[in-house]
Simulated scan of single mutants.
Amino acid sequence: MQVHLHLARVALVAAGMHTAAFAAVPTPPVLDRALAAGLKIVRQFPAASGLTGWVLSQGGNYSLVYTTADGKTLVAGVLVDGKGQNLSAQHEERYLPKPDFTAAYAQLEKAAFVAEGAARPRSVIYAFVDPNCPFCHLMWRAVQPYQAAGLQVRWIPVATLGPTSMPKSIAVLAAADKAAAFRRMEENHGKPWVDEGKTEATHPAVAAAVRANGALMDRFGIGGTPGVVWRDTNGKVQVRSGMPRLSELPAITGLPEQKLSDTALDKFK
């Protein structure tokens, strides 16, 4: 989960981890404005250079901030020690509550998606995609060998990247053969688009389904496409925003690593 940092500028702190015994400190005055705005303190913890870390929550989102020993200065951003270690990432992993996407995952089966790949899959993943997203197209190319090996990808069209995203999504979901329409769209990615005249006015129910897909993507906290959702080997729901590294695909798909010869994917190795 990415930490939502909206309270101050990013700061870099070059220092070692504080390991001394830590006693709870009173809420510093510098946090008063955040608390007055509706944020709540989830927990506090010792951080580098005498800083105190604070996990704040609002509306189901969590923020990680730090305060100085005098309680007069707030730091929101990435803490980096003298060895270049991202201390904020360590704090995020250790102290931020882990989201439970079980309820949201149950809604994926009801989403308007396009199933592509194995008819009798060895594994299934879901991917939120925008028709105009170049990284979604690269992910489509990257999973082709995995689909041949038994993966089924359930592509969930959304409309987030411009005025043509909605009609393109409608054209796919309203097609008699959705999988063929989706493949045709991906094979023609980057080429001039032929408007089929399928709009929100002509297909209001399909447009509503695309908007519902976008709302479902938000429930998973996915900030951009592609957004991948799957169950790991322990059955836990996992979420990945953005184009995965190729090395991540075996874990995401639950299948052995497949050979990828597409040079367009080299930068994701």
Rank of each mutant, 00 (worst) to 15 (best):
residue 136 C to F: 03
residue 174 A to L: 07
residue 159 A to Y: 08
residue 144 Q to N: 05
residue 243 M to Y: 05
residue 45 F to I: 08
residue 132 N to W: 00
residue 104 A to D: 11
residue 152 Q to F: 04
residue 20 A to T: 03
residue 244 P to C: 04
residue 125 I to P: 03
residue 150 G to V: 06
residue 253 T to F: 00
residue 201 A to N: 03
residue 83 K to A: 15
residue 51 L to G: 04
residue 80 V to I: 14
residue 56 L to V: 09
residue 43 R to P: 01
residue 84 G to Y: 05
residue 202 T to L: 02
residue 99 P to V: 06
residue 66 Y to Q: 03
residue 244 P to S: 08
residue 9 R to M: 10
residue 71 G to A: 07
residue 106 A to E: 07
residue 233 T to I: 15
residue 116 E to K: 11
residue 154 R to A: 06
residue 27 T to A: 07
residue 56 L to H: 09
residue 11 A to L: 12
residue 208 A to E: 11
residue 263 T to Q: 12
residue 213 N to S: 07
residue 214 G to C: 03
residue 3 V to F: 15
residue 163 P to G: 10
residue 238 Q to V: 03
residue 197 G to M: 02
residue 162 G to Y: 04
residue 129 V to I: 15
residue 35 L to M: 07
residue 100 D to L: 10
residue 63 S to M: 10
residue 178 K to F: 01
residue 59 G to K: 07
residue 34 A to Q: 13
residue 59 G to P: 01
residue 262 D to E: 08
residue 262 D to M: 02
residue 51 L to F: 03
residue 265 L to N: 00
residue 208 A to S: 12
residue 51 L to V: 12
residue 203 H to E: 13
residue 121 P to E: 03
residue 50 G to A: 01
residue 75 V to F: 14
residue 187 E to R: 15
residue 76 A to C: 09
residue 164 T to C: 01
residue 79 L to K: 10
residue 257 E to Y: 04
residue 268 F to A: 09
residue 126 Y to F: 11
residue 92 E to P: 03
residue 57 S to A: 14
residue 144 Q to S: 09
residue 263 T to D: 12
residue 265 L to A: 03
residue 57 S to E: 14
residue 226 P to R: 13
residue 177 D to F: 01
residue 169 S to L: 06
residue 133 C to R: 05
residue 196 E to I: 00
residue 42 V to N: 09
residue 147 Q to K: 12
residue 37 A to E: 13
residue 120 R to E: 10
residue 115 A to K: 08
residue 3 V to R: 15
residue 62 Y to M: 00
residue 76 A to E: 14
residue 217 M to V: 04
residue 97 P to Y: 04
residue 267 K to M: 10
residue 198 K to T: 00
residue 171 A to H: 02
residue 257 E to N: 11
residue 155 W to T: 08
residue 194 V to R: 11
residue 200 E to P: 00
residue 110 K to N: 12
residue 24 A to P: 05
residue 232 D to P: 07
residue 172 V to L: 05
